[in-house]
Design a protein around this nucleic acid. Structure first.
Lengths: 169, 169
DNA sequence: TCCCTCTTGTAGCAAGCGCTACATATAGCT
DNA sequence: AGCTATATGTAGCGCTTGCTACAAGAGGGA
């Protein structure tokens, strides 16, 4: 049930989600969604946890295995892959999650933290093996990536990429 | 009328905004909001344009006039100021705008573009006078700032700051 | 004074919302 | 076989949503 719900939300976003269309897409009824999850809020909480948990899988499926040649190359690789068409549904909910975090919602904060921790770990493990400080490097790369992704979301894809390409190393 | 509307939205966010509470906060009725703006969509469009237009004013009011000592100092200064408590209302709507851009809404895209153009110009004008390439420098700084702001929104303020402090120069 | 346009209050419509009451089907255990 | 717990369909409740119909006040030009 959760996978079908997640698939629908990935396509339609999380912001104005309502139970009846969601239930129809999942092949059930709003009645059953409430029955299984207890309430809409509980459904959203479980959904966010599910999405955070499944994030690693999509990362490893889409990203190459080897290490990057430099921090900049690592950042550019992540940008290239997350800029692909089939990654857009993920960002459709990602910015909804960020907006929810800004409102202070605990479920959104937990999910965003999980997702970002996984991404940070992935980046640290894909930096060059001789990186002097993988943790700091990952923080720099993540900051650059997320800034570029936001600029891409508002239609300034080039600006963020130009910023990333100026990273040293 | 627009300033009162904008003040309410800055406090309560843009995502689940509905006409009746908004009208009450603005000292009028939903009936009058529709009468003046034509529809809720038109109201949101005018509101976004208004917010983008007023963004420069808040920037110049809050930010120091002098130039920064380096690109990194410039980024850190912007981070320090936009991290203050009284800047949070702006980010409450900013991430709603980004989410709206990801959905492809033209009004949101226009407003986000205006705001980002103004920020880019401001940053370019506050880089060190001897910066070899203010445009590229501004792009780098903006990318870093926005990444750090997103990380701050999800509760990882330190990660983004650590990333910024690794910028060269 | 009369009219005409701009503005505004009251009431309400159709639709959608999250959620619930009730009845029923099914399946497993004793 | 009978009982109980789980699962599901139907109908609808109370509420909010964006928006509208209608009437009435207000002010200005002829």
């Amino acid at each position: 049930m959760l996978p079908l719900v997640a698939a629908y939300v990935m396509q339609h976003g999380l912001a104005g989600m309502s139970l009846r269309p969601l239930a129809k897409a999942a092949g059930t009824s709003d009645r059953m969604l409430i029955y299984h999850f207890g309430s809409k809020d509980a459904l959203v909480a479980e959904l966010l946890a599910f999405l955070a948990q499944n994030f690693t899988a999509s990362l490893d499926a889409a990203f190459p295995q080897g290490r990057a040649a430099s921090r900049r190359d690592c950042a550019l690789t992540v940008m290239e892959i997350t800029g692909r068409e089939d990654f857009q549904p993920f960002f459709r909910i990602w910015w909804d999650i960020v907006a929810g975090c800004q409102r202070g919602d605990p479920a959104y904060l937990a999910a965003a933290g999980d997702i970002m921790d996984q991404l940070t770990l992935w980046v640290a493990n894909h930096l060059p093996a001789d990186d002097p400080d993988p943790d700091s490097g990952a923080q720099l790369v993540i900051t650059a990536i997320e800034g570029a992704q936001m600029l891409a979301a508002i239609g300034r894809r080039g600006v963020g990429l130009a910023g990333i390409s100026q990273l040293h190393q």
